[in-house]
């Protein structure tokens, strides 16, 4: 087995395991996620609490499992928003070119000039904190990269003979764009989506860490990280667990993206 396949498989395995955990958490968690137990505060990892307990005596593993729902949900919805709008904008811009392209791309450029987390922060502080606004903010922030990638594919492909041939058949512009060109430029977009998923998870964690993302008592990995900070000397496992899981999920999607890209480039 060669190196590129290893990337892909590491990614697939990591994501599958975490996804399984997320699915299980929909029906079952070892302990209640919100119930406070004063007698079991800051218990180190043991057979009863695999990842220990937090400052309220809640089971960390259960909260991590529940938090994976948030991570996947935010990632999925944000990437969907970003990719659908980004692909649409990029396709129009790349296919029609000219002045439309100039205007759209300058707007996209100016969006890219700001660090995306800063823009997300701005959005959330203007429109209010909470899950929905967090997702929208992260989604909007990922539009530029999708738009750019899609545009470059369309610019390249619209001059190719098969597109000319489609025009000669009398195919409408809309159909050429989405039925002919899009499938042919899809693979870099899939790679971007995988990377975008990782970024969305990170962004959600960062926003929640700053207290602007997911609000308690909903568990979120970023939120857990920020809460645990104060108790890092008393219960280090409480801080390590969400950190490790964020890393694993982000790593998983990055590996997956790399793996897909390697296969694509080898062809």
């Amino acid at each position: 087995m060669n190196k590129s396949r290893i990337n892909l498989w590491i990614g697939i395995v990591l994501i599958s395991v975490l996804m399984l955990m997320m699915v299980v958490s929909l029906f079952y968690t070892p302990f209640s996620v919100t119930e406070i137990n004063r007698l079991e505060r800051f218990e180190p990892p043991s057979a009863r609490h695999l990842l220990g307990t937090d400052n309220f005596g809640r089971d960390v593993l259960s909260r991590i499992m529940k938090g994976s729902q948030t991570a996947f949900f935010v990632g999925l919805v944000a990437v969907s928003i970003g990719s659908i709008l980004g692909v649409l904008i990029g396709a129009i811009s790349g296919y029609f070119g000219g002045i439309v392209d100039e205007i759209i791309m300058r707007i996209v450029d100016s969006m890219m000039a700001f660090p995306s987390i800063l823009l997300a922060l701005m959005f959330v502080s203007v429109f209010g904190v909470g899950l929905r606004n967090t997702i929208i903010a992260i989604g909007i922030m990922s539009i530029p990269s999708f738009a750019r990638i899609t545009r470059s594919g369309f610019v390249q492909h619209k001059e190719l003979d098969y597109v000319k041939n489609a025009k000669i058949k009398g195919v409408s512009n809309l159909r050429i764009m989405f039925r002919h060109i899009l499938p042919n430029v899809l693979s870099p977009i899939v790679v971007a989506a995988s990377m975008g998923f990782a970024n969305a998870v990170l962004a959600e964690a960062a926003l929640s860490y700053l207290g602007l993302g997911i609000q308690p008592p909903n568990p979120s990995w970023g939120k857990m990280l920020s809460e645990s900070q104060v108790f890092i000397t008393v219960g280090p496992w409480y801080a390590i667990a969400p950190g490790v899981f964020i890393t694993l999920l982000v790593l998983g999607f990055n590996f997956l993206g790399d793996g897909i890209r390697d296969i694509r480039e080898k062809r």
């Binding site: 190719l160 098969y162 041939n165 000669i168 039925r179 499938p183 042919n184």
Partner: peptide, 16 residues
């Protein structure tokens, strides 16, 4: 009016 190109590989959509 229709047209046939020189290079049939590039004039057909590879994914259709």
């Amino acid at each position: 009016i229709s047209m046939v190109f020189q290079d049939s590989l590039s004039s057909l959509n590879p994914l259709m």
